[in-house]
Amino acid sequence: MNVNADVVGSRFAPNLRDSTSTARKSRDKIFLLVLWFATLCAVLTLFFLILTTLLKGAGRLNLSLVTNFPSPFPEDAGIQSAIFGSLWVVITSGFASLFIGLGSAIYLEEFANSTSRITRLITLNIQTLAGVPSIVFGILGLAFVARGWLGWGFSVGTASAVLTMMVLPVVVVSSREALKAVPPSLREGSYALGATKWQTIRKQVIPAAVPGIATGSILGVSRALGESAPLILLGALAYVSSNPSGFGSDYTVLPLIIMKFTQDAQDEFRAVGAAAIIVLLVLLVSLNLLAIVIRDRSRKSW
């Protein structure tokens, strides 16, 4: 009996006879050190990047940076039209992707027959689309939105539509996960009280899924904010001296203007570029903070 227990212990359970030995504890420490090192690598890289950018751009980080328009001269170059261009594109594409994305997620999760071939095909497609490189969406947008039968030209509307397409799969996938995570007891309770399916979804399921939906869509929108590849194809400009006034306007966006500034021959321009990077980072961080706030405010525990 004793022998038997020993065999089981050595094979399948932690070796209890070793429990006081220093070998196990030191292995534990080494593992912790490896984890620490991995975290440190990521954090230090980020810290170094932000620090060098801050040092480079600090001199130009003032009000004139956000009140001036792009200029061929570093002294009075600003990024106002890029900030508003980015806000326009990101806010409109954020709303559009949330609306369409949440709608399709609700359909797929609550209404569609999840075993049918068509549903499975759609799911597979959406998951694939989430991994498609953004430049592919740019080419698609150039052919069908900017030119082709929509023919919206190189405008805010085109950029917004293409970024919507790009963000949409992420929103659908994350919204579905959020809806899936709502406990069935909540739905059953609602049905038991005589609520219809739509009432249940609207009053119980969606409110309960808000944290997940908000996090997913704001992360998607953050991705759109930092995106430049498809917008180069879609006619985002370098020199625009006015803010967009509608969907038909010419526009530029922050990542693109940063690219133009940092590629310039003059060191002074690279400083403006670094300052613009800081503005973009601040925008991104505030978007992520918004996601956290929404998540925390609407979190429920069952």
Binding site: P207, I294, K300
Partner: peptide
């Protein structure tokens, strides 16, 4: 209720 609060905040921000 909590959802309503956050929704109006989002709306106000936008």
């Amino acid at each position: 209720m909590t959802f309503k609060v956050s929704k109006s905040k989002v709306a106000r921000f936008l």
